[in-house]
C-alpha cells in the first residue's frame, strides 16, 4: 500500500454549552489504495475525521498516522481561493512553483489560458477546478477532499467528479473523500466506508473500476448501504 491514513481508536468531542458532545468514538480505519469515500449523514463526524487526518485539528485520543511521503493536498467544500491572487498564483500558493508548472496543472484541470484570471473573474465550477489544481501542486500522494462538490449544481458536480477520476488515474494518487451523497460515493469510491455515530458502521469495496465508467449505480451495494444507514437511525 502507498500513501494513506491509518487511524486507531480515534476519539474527538466538541464542547457545547458546557458539555462535551462526542463526534468520533473509537474509530479504527486503514486506508487502501485508490479512492476511499467516507459516507454518512450530516453531523456524523466525516469532516472532523478529515480535518484530524489533515492535521488541522487534534484528536482527544487515539493514533492518526499518514502513511507515505507526507505530501498531501486538501480540497475543501468551497474553493477557498485567495481573492487577491491569479489562478496560477493560487495554484502555486505557498510553494516554490514556477509559473509554467502552475500553467500545466491548470491545463490538467481544463483551465489552460486562464492563468492570469482572478477568482472573481471565474465561474463557480472553474474556481473548484483551480482549487483541485492547487491541491495537486505539491505532487501529493494523498489528496483529502471534504465534500468538494457539494456546493455545485448537478451538471458541474458530475463534470468535476469525472475530472477527479481522470486526475486520480493519471497521477496514481490516493484520495480520501467525504460526502453525504450516496450516488457520489457509489460513482467515485473504490471503497465506501459508512460512518455513523462516530464509528464505522459498514465498509464496502466498490466494483466501480472493474467495468466501464457508468453513472448507473450498483443497485445491490446501494441497497446494502441504505439498509445500513436506515438500521442505524431506526
Amino acid at each position: 500500500m502507498t500513501a494513506g491514513a491509518e487511524i486507531a481508536n480515534l476519539h474527538k468531542s466538541y464542547g457545547l454549552r458546557g458539555r462535551a458532545v462526542p463526534v468520533l468514538t473509537g474509530l479504527d480505519f486503514v486506508q487502501r489504495d485508490g479512492i476511499t469515500v467516507v459516507l454518512g449523514p450530516s453531523g456524523c463526524g466525516k469532516t472532523t475525521l478529515l480535518r484530524i487526518v489533515a492535521g488541522m485539528e487534534a484528536p482527544d485520543d487515539g493514533v492518526v498516522r499518514v502513511r507515505g511521503d507526507g505530501r498531501t493536498g486538501m480540497v475543501f467544500q468551497e474553493p477557498r481561493l485567495m481573492p487577491w491572487l491569479s489562478a496560477a498564483q493560487n495554484v502555486a500558493f505557498g510553494q516554490r512553483r514556477r509559473r509554467c508548472e502552475s500553467a500545466g496543472l491548470l491545463a490538467l484541470v481544463g483551465l489552460a489560458g486562464f492563468e492570469d484570471a482572478l477568482p472573481h473573474q471565474l465561474s463557480g465550477g472553474m474556481r473548484h477546478r483551480v482549487a483541485l489544481a492547487r491541491a495537486l501542486a505539491n505532487g501529493p500522494s494523498l489528496v483529502l477532499a471534504d465534500e468538494p462538490f457539494a456546493a455545485l449544481d448537478q451538471d458541474t458536480r458530475e463534470d468535476m467528479q469525472d475530472l477527479l477520476l481522470d486526475v486520480q488515474r493519471t497521477t496514481g494518487m490516493n484520495v480520501l473523500l467525504v460526502t453525504h451523497s450516496l450516488d457520489e460515493a457509489l460513482y467515485l469510491g473504490d471503497r465506501i466506508v459508512v460512518l455513523d455515530g462516530g464509528r464505522i458502521a459498514a465498509d464496502h469495496s466498490s466494483p466501480r473500476n472493474a467495468g466501464p465508467r457508468t453513472r448507473e449505480p450498483d443497485r445491490r451495494l446501494a441497497e446494502l448501504i441504505r439498509a445500513t444507514l436506515q438500521r442505524k437511525h431506526s
Binding site: G110, G125, Q161
Partner: peptide, 18 residues
C-alpha cells in the same frame, strides 16, 4: 456571476464549458 451548468463530462484538458 451565476453558476453555469456543464452539459456533459469533459475530458481532462478540455476547455472549461463555463
Amino acid at each position: 456571476m451565476t453558476q453555469t451548468a456543464d452539459a456533459a463530462p469533459a475530458p481532462v484538458g478540455a476547455p472549461p464549458p463555463e
